Computed example of a mutant assay.
Amino acid sequence: MSEKRLGIAQRATLLLLMAEGRGLTNKQIKAIGGFSPLTGKDLTPIARFIDTTKIGREHVHTLTEAGWAWCRDELSEPPSSGSGTAGGALYSLLGGLGRYLSRNPSVKLKDIFSPVITERAEVEVMIRQAYVELRTEPRGWVSLTDLRAKLSGIAKSEVDAVLYQMSRQKVVNIVPPSNRKLMTSADREATIRIGNEDRLHLSIDEP
């Protein structure tokens, strides 16, 4: 890579976000990666590679497109001095992955590292994060069509289950489309049935 190589902790942060394929809070980075999240000046060199969104009291970090591009480039890099045995093995594995992608250009890094969601609390965090990224003003309306596109790695049934729960808790308001004649086929597939109505637009209360 042409630019100065990032430090081990910075690379580990980006590669962890790549491997998980989703946004992570500081607590999740610590629990999954086993290292403390970067703060202050240590974040500066990777600022353009990570998008940080505040959801409630937590900060959720997600790879940007530039971050995914960095990860793809890193697959062809050797381990740096001081990486240790595990670091050497990791970069050997990353190199093999890079060679596979080079032989199969239609496969993208995001296709390989789709998120694995095990708890509904994690799905709610991802819903809130996607909502914040899509809405144009606090508590603004967002189409479920656009929201589901952001959550393409999660089954519709999982998203719906969490939306039902959030609706019962009155932290999300989901309403029918204002003009059904203007709905596309994607809109109709994205709706959620609540009561006797198919609903398409939502607004979330933000702490």
Rank of each mutant, 00 (worst) to 15 (best):
P78S: 09
P79M: 05
P79I: 02
P79D: 03
P79V: 04
P79F: 06
P79R: 06
S80R: 15
S80K: 14
S80I: 07
S81P: 14
G82W: 09
G82R: 11
G82L: 12
S83Q: 11
S83M: 12
S83H: 12
G84N: 06
G84H: 08
T85V: 06
T85W: 12
T85M: 12
A86C: 10
A86V: 09
G88A: 12
G88R: 15
A89F: 10
A89M: 12
A89I: 11
L90S: 09
L90M: 15
L90P: 04
Y91N: 03
S92G: 05
S92H: 06
L93I: 11
L94P: 01
G95Q: 10
G96L: 14
G96A: 11
G98Y: 05
R99T: 03
R99C: 02
Y100A: 10
Y100F: 15
L101R: 00
L101N: 01
L101W: 00
S102T: 15
S102P: 03
R103F: 11
R103H: 11
N104F: 07
N104G: 06
N104E: 08
P105Y: 05
P105L: 07
P105S: 04
P105W: 04
P105A: 05
S106A: 14
S106I: 07
V107I: 08
V107N: 03
K108H: 10
K108D: 05
K108F: 06
K108E: 07
L109P: 00
L109V: 02
K110H: 10
D111R: 01
I112L: 03
I112Q: 01
I112R: 03
I112G: 01
F113T: 00
F113Y: 07
S114L: 15
S114T: 10
